[in-house]
Nucleic acid binder design. Structure first.
Lengths: 192, 192
DNA sequence: CATTTACACTAGCGCTTGCTTGGTTACTCA
DNA sequence: TGAGTAACCAAGCAAGCGCTAGTGTAAATG
């Protein structure tokens, strides 16, 4: 939480901004639209955020920060076996992806709109998260649970999971946990 | 090829537009920037395209059209076994993804910028392509080659493949075909 | 030779954009 | 009670936006 002034008011405004960024895309979202959903006038927006860029950075920081917390908690609470850890990580990923959906969609698809300074700062957060994944994948490979190149496997798995935001509806009959389990089953040689 | 006047000149302009759309994003790409990389003035652009929207539609149509051709050819030429067909489809997907990379990145990440009319037209093309995938996945499931829900498996596989545009560098040591084989191996229970 | 067609140009209209300015209101706390 | 501060507003600027209008020109066509 470097760039971030995490007052409750600002957090709420950030949440509203995330929703609008998802709906319209960052570039098409005007400061006037943002102000309107926030219930203020466009000029007042710049009391809370230095500029439009800073709103984007706040949205992404919030989402990634939460993802890290959830993933660490999941890994701490689950069993030590590689399979349990892999399953826990996949479940945690989908959990954060769909509880902070707006923030994560923005992080995934509007990342390139960040200016270099914000990108450098947020890269660290993202790298910390991805290194959790790499550790879990490495353990699963070493235990013979899955096979393949460690780099490729983690990219494929993360790709499959991240892509779910494009098609999956969590209010449907299938829970995020089901989804995670199905993916783990798919990449594990005939478990049961 | 409904909306499209496929003169060579227009094709070349479409290719240049795709590159710029990837570099800057559709919304941040101005007609003046487009005109500049095309070597003309912004007014002249509207002799070739009705408006900016039509350029986006042309880019996506071109890419999806090529994807269909490549995939159909690959399926016609490969062996009849489900495993060969699965591998061929994955390879074809990555082949088109990285030979028409710009067009596909635009199709994947700027789809929502299409107006409803263009979206309806292009949806048919995309559905035709995806139905090829569904057929191949169904065969692989029926042959016991892979396991899981047909809908989920195809979504996961397509997600993993599409996400490669975010990290994979085809000029590196690993060929797209290698990549496709690794993914197929990952989802198949210990083949060799 | 006259006409059409394809392609490019200049100039600029009407509008929206992110952001600034200068000032007001409401609340907190010594 | 009065100083300080957080939150807001109305008004508007300078720049940039997509797109249009009207014109020039060289090659193809009758």
């Amino acid at each position: 939480m470097n760039v971030m002034n995490a007052s409750p008011r600002r957090k709420e405004l950030t949440r509203l901004a995330a929703q609008l960024f998802v709906q319209e895309g960052f570039d098409r979202t005007t400061v006037r639209m943002l102000a309107q959903v926030m219930g203020i006038k466009s000029g007042s927006l710049f009391h809370h955020f230095k500029d439009k860029q800073e709103i984007l950075a706040a949205v992404i920081e919030e989402g990634t920060h939460n993802a890290l917390i959830i993933a660490r908690k999941a890994l701490n609470e689950c069993a030590a076996e590689p399979e349990a850890r892999l399953r826990a990580m996949a479940r945690a990923h989908l959990e954060t992806l769909f509880t902070d959906r707006n923030a994560h969609v923005v992080a995934l698809f509007e990342w390139r709109r960040l200016d270099p300074a914000a990108r450098a700062h947020l890269s660290h957060l993202r790298d910390a998260y991805e290194s959790l994944w790499v550790g879990v994948i490495d353990d699963a490979l070493q235990a013979g649970l899955i096979h393949g190149d460690r780099f490729l496997v983690s990219r494929f798995v993360l790709g499959a999971l991240n892509w779910t935001v494009r098609w999956y509806d969590p209010s449907g009959p299938r829970s995020p946990d089901d989804l995670a389990d199905e993916l783990v089953a798919m990449i594990m040689p005939t478990p049961a």
